[in-house]
Computed example of a mutant assay.
Amino acid sequence: PAFKHQPKPAMHKRKLHVNGLPGPYTDIFMWIAPATLMGLPATSAPVGSTKNGLPVNIQILGRKYHDKTTIKFASLLEKSLRGFIKPEGY
C-alpha cells in the first residue's frame, strides 16, 4: 500500500515501515531500479485499497519503447476496476 510522503528529515535519515518493520527510506529505489536501469517503460496503476483506505497500486513494466502499451494496460485496469480513490486526509 501507499506510504505517507516524508519530505523531511534528510532522505538517509528517514524510515519506511514495511510489514510493520522499520527500514531505510532509500529502499524505495529498489522498487523502481529494475525498470530504470533497463530503460523500460513503467506505469503505476491503482488496483484497490487497504481496509484503512490506502491505495494499492501495481507497477506495469513493458518492452523497451512500448510506453503506450503500459499506459493502455493501466487504462484498461482502471476501467475494469474502480480506479483511484483519494484517501481521507490526503
Rank of each mutant, 00 (worst) to 15 (best):
Gly83Met: 01
Gly23Ile: 05
Val18Phe: 08
Pro41Leu: 00
Lys64Met: 13
Asp27Gln: 14
Leu77Cys: 13
Ser44Asp: 04
Arg82Ser: 15
Gly53Ile: 02
Lys51Ile: 10
Thr69Asp: 14
Ala42Val: 06
Asp27His: 12
Leu81Ala: 09
Ile32Ser: 11
Lys51Asp: 11
Pro46Phe: 03
Ser44Tyr: 05
Asn57Gly: 11
Phe29Val: 02
Pro9Thr: 01
Asn57Lys: 07
Arg82Ala: 15
Leu54Pro: 00
Tyr65Cys: 10
Val47Gln: 03
Thr26Tyr: 10
Ala2Val: 11
Gln59Glu: 09
Gly23Thr: 09
Leu81His: 13
Pro7Ser: 04
Lys8Thr: 12
Tyr90Ile: 13
Glu88Phe: 02
Leu81Arg: 11
Thr36His: 09
Arg14Glu: 06
Gln6Ile: 02
Leu77Met: 13
Pro41Ser: 00
Tyr90Gly: 06
Arg63Cys: 08
Leu54Thr: 03
Ser44Gln: 07
Ala42Tyr: 04
Tyr65His: 15
Arg63Val: 10
Ala10Leu: 07
Tyr25Pro: 02
Met38Ile: 04
Ala2Ile: 05
Asn19Val: 06
Leu76Pro: 01
Met30His: 07
Ile58Leu: 08
Pro1Met: 12
Tyr90Asn: 07
Asn19Trp: 09
Tyr25Ser: 06
Gly53Ser: 00
Gly48Lys: 03
Leu81Tyr: 14
Lys4Tyr: 12
Thr69Gln: 12
Gln6Glu: 08
Lys4Trp: 12
Ile32Arg: 15
Thr50Met: 04
Leu16Lys: 04
Thr43Cys: 14
Lys8Glu: 08
Lys13Val: 02
Thr50Val: 01
Ile60Lys: 04
Ser44Glu: 01
Lys4Ser: 09
Thr26Asn: 12
Gly23Met: 10
Arg14Gly: 01
Leu76Ser: 14
Gln6Leu: 13
Ile71Met: 09
His12Ile: 08
Thr69Arg: 09
His66Thr: 08
Phe3Pro: 06
Tyr65Leu: 13
Thr69Met: 11
Pro87Asp: 02
Asn57Met: 07
Ala42Gln: 15
Gly83His: 00
Asp27Asn: 12
Lys64His: 08
Ser75Phe: 15
Gly89Arg: 03
Asn19His: 13
